[in-house]
Computed example of a mutant assay.
Amino acid sequence: MSAGDRLLATTPILNFNHPSITQLIEDRGWKALSQHDRIGAVYDFVRNEIAFGYNRADDIPAADVLDDGFGQCNTKGTLLMALLRAVGVRCRLHGFTIHKELQRGVVPELVYPLAPNEIVHSWVEVETEMGWANLEGFILDAEFLLALQSAFTDSPSLCGYGAGTDCLQAPPVEWTGGDTYIQETGIAQDFGTFDAPDEFYAAHQQSFSFVKGILYRHIIRHWMNTRVRRIRSGNVPQIPGLALPNHKHEESRHAS
């Protein structure tokens, strides 16, 4: 199989031949679009119709992410890759780790000290008519991002609450044909590119002890998803050491 074929291939994780994915693509009519618009339509679907949230594991198949209806960097990236390949767009994965500080505000403070210092992260590289583009801006859905922008209008940069950006009020998250980012400033290690997430997770898995893994899957991630929903609704918690949400400024002024 040629390198080009590998970047269009189905895999156990990129299971875009699953009936739920093929039906979605048929219903949306994405294959009839130009390459630029195909990428944009798939990107916008994953960004905004798959909400930001935490699945049971990083290496679940694309159809499971679609069924969950939510995901984070790695799982939303898996679904994005599967949909892109299903409509004939070549793509690959670029693996990283991010500093755990980026997850403060989402990870409950009680368990934050137990979190790994670096968290497995990835974005999708897609082949466009102009060359390769890095896609990471799909991680936070528009409603969640707007809640952060509304809470931190005085902060040009933010590393926390799932965001890592130096331009919070106007981050490059819209598909225009080039790179998109929303967690770029939190990157720690760069693992390079992989043809598929299957290869990436075979080499780089998040290191949890057995007990911590069970706690994450059955308790902590549900706690995190509850916090994500609260943030999306505008209830952004105050976290020591991070920028102060605007509503906290208001409370301080009223108290004084």
Rank of each mutant, 00 (worst) to 15 (best):
S2W: 09
S2V: 12
A3G: 14
L7A: 11
L7I: 09
L8S: 08
A9W: 12
T11A: 08
P12F: 05
I13H: 01
L14F: 05
L14W: 03
H18Q: 06
P19V: 09
T22V: 14
Q23P: 07
I25P: 03
R28A: 14
A41F: 10
Y43N: 06
Y43M: 10
D44Q: 15
N48I: 08
F52V: 01
F52G: 00
G53I: 06
G53Y: 01
Y54W: 11
A57L: 07
D59E: 10
A62S: 03
V65H: 04
V65M: 07
V65R: 07
L66V: 03
L66E: 01
L66A: 02
D68Y: 13
D68Q: 11
T75C: 08
M81I: 08
L83Y: 03
R85S: 08
R85G: 05
R85F: 08
R85D: 03
A86S: 11
G88R: 06
R90E: 10
C91I: 06
H94W: 10
F96S: 09
F96N: 10
E101Y: 15
Q103K: 15
Q103F: 15
N117Y: 13
N117M: 14
E118T: 14
I119R: 06
V124H: 02
E125H: 04
V126E: 00
E127P: 02
T128G: 05
E129Q: 09
M130V: 14
G131M: 04
N134H: 14
F138Y: 15
F138W: 05
F144D: 01
F144V: 02
L145Y: 02
L146S: 12
A147N: 02
P156Y: 10
S157K: 12
G160F: 01
Y161K: 00
Y161P: 00
G162H: 00
T165G: 00
D166V: 08
C167F: 09
L168K: 03
A170G: 08
P171D: 00
E174K: 11
E174T: 13
W175K: 07
G178L: 11
D179E: 10
D179A: 11
I182T: 07
Q183W: 11
Q183I: 12
T185S: 15
G186R: 04
G186N: 03
G186V: 05
I187N: 02
A188I: 05
A196L: 06
P197W: 04
D198H: 02
E199S: 13
Y201G: 01
A203D: 11
A203W: 05
H204P: 02
Q205T: 10
S209E: 08
K212Q: 11
K212Y: 10
G213A: 06
L215T: 05
M224K: 02
M224I: 03
R230V: 07
I231V: 08
R232Q: 03
G234E: 00
P237D: 01
Q238D: 11
I239W: 00
G241D: 02
L244N: 02
P245C: 03
H249Y: 13
E250D: 12
E250M: 12
E251A: 15
A255M: 13
S256P: 10
